[in-house]
Design a protein around this nucleic acid. Structure first.
Lengths: 212, 212
DNA sequence: AGCGTTGGCAAACAGACGTTTGCCATGGGC
DNA sequence: GCCCATGGCAAACGTCTGTTTGCCAACGCT
């Protein structure tokens, strides 16, 4: 039996510390103490503190993009259905990679980071474009009837979902999906959604349910 | 003629540096250089770096709360109208206190800050409660027909608006109001808002327009 | 004119923290 | 049983940066 590596613990501890204190305030000593080792020992696994952030952020980022691709490939379903899947997907990743996914969100915006994070910023840009395209497609097909330009709408939707970093904690798969659907219903129908809107929401098919 | 104080310049420079680099990465030297003095000289105006953050954040925070009070006092208009005013108000403050208001948003969430920031966290909590109460009132009065619990709806709305820190830049009073109204229209009518919804939006009165 | 306050400069200080180094215990493979 | 890679420990290093201190020029006031 090989001596168990403590890399997973370190990764998890780093994620939690980054989440609680922010990258700049988090200390290597805090992370190491959480695992039960000294801060110097962390350098047996990484070359720098930034490497830790990179490692924490990489998993949720890749998962998000992979699912986005899967989702965009499914051009058969209506736009509303794809958008609902998008929201569900994102909530699922928030939950599955908690709190790493929130570390990702929080630190993407920060400049200052080395060029090694450029890839993630590109990924984020691609994500925004995808949402905007989805919204625009819905408007073009008549499925949506927008009260604002697609870009504004896309930003508002993303904000609604990404803002969850300030209040969301996982509550199990079922509850998470319910939450995602509530958010999506609000996005689709708005505050004033009457009975007809809710009927329409209830009638949406479930073609993309992920087997887990 | 008294020797002109450089406090306003320092405050503005601090706001910009905090906005661009984040509080922790911003350096006193960067702020001082922006004004054209040395970092030590800043201590003629402040006792600590934290004081600077406090000063930057205080103005937009107080303005926001003051306007919120004014807005909540107006119980005569319908809930939708008050909610639209809320969005307009917030965009206006983002614009008027740019970028200080975004520094406020960005750093409220961070823990680590001294107890002196507790007041702002209370203010934020009060703000959230107000939005939630507004939403609930709309649901109770029949003006809204919610697809989710008021608390979720309130969080989504706040997220939509507060996320603007990642893409908004002021474009003049008129354009800002137009933008606010687009966001509000999306919140009220959703993606699928049909022609009837837009007609209803257009028919909303303007009882709270602020004289500027 | 003389005096006190304001505020900038230059330099040094101090603490925090990321990183490096040398050492040693462990445990699997030949 | 020997060897070596792994990984932890302890301590030191170096830098960055917030903060302090002493000095002095500029200016307003009496």
């Amino acid at each position: 039996m090989p001596r168990p590596s403590r890399w997973p613990e370190i990764l998890q501890a780093a994620g939690q510390e980054f989440r609680e204190h922010g990258y700049e305030n988090a200390t290597l000593e805090g992370i190491a103490t959480r695992v039960g080792i000294l801060k110097g020992s962390v350098y047996n696994y990484v070359d720098s503190k930034e490497d830790l952030l990179l490692a924490v952020v990489e998993q949720p980022a890749r998962a998000l993009l992979a699912e986005l691709d899967r989702l965009l490939a499914d051009a058969d379903s209506g736009v509303a259905v794809r958008l609902r899947e998008l929201v569900r997907m994102q909530v699922r990743i928030f939950s599955e990679y908690y709190p790493a996914a929130f570390v990702y969100l929080e630190h993407l915006g920060r400049l200052e980071l080395s060029p090694r994070f450029a890839e993630f910023r590109r990924m984020d840009a691609r994500y925004m474009e995808a949402v905007e395209a989805l919204v625009a497609e819905g408007a073009a097909s008549g499925e949506f009837s927008l009260a604002a330009e697609p870009r504004i709408v896309a930003r508002a939707l993303v904000g609604m979902v990404d803002w969850m970093q300030h209040w969301f904690t996982p509550h199990g798969e079922e509850a998470d999906i319910r939450l995602a659907d509530q958010l999506f219903a609000l996005a689709l129908g708005g505050l004033a959604a009457g009975g007809s809107m809710r009927a329409m929401l209830g009638a949406l098919p479930d073609p993309l349910v992920v087997e887990t």
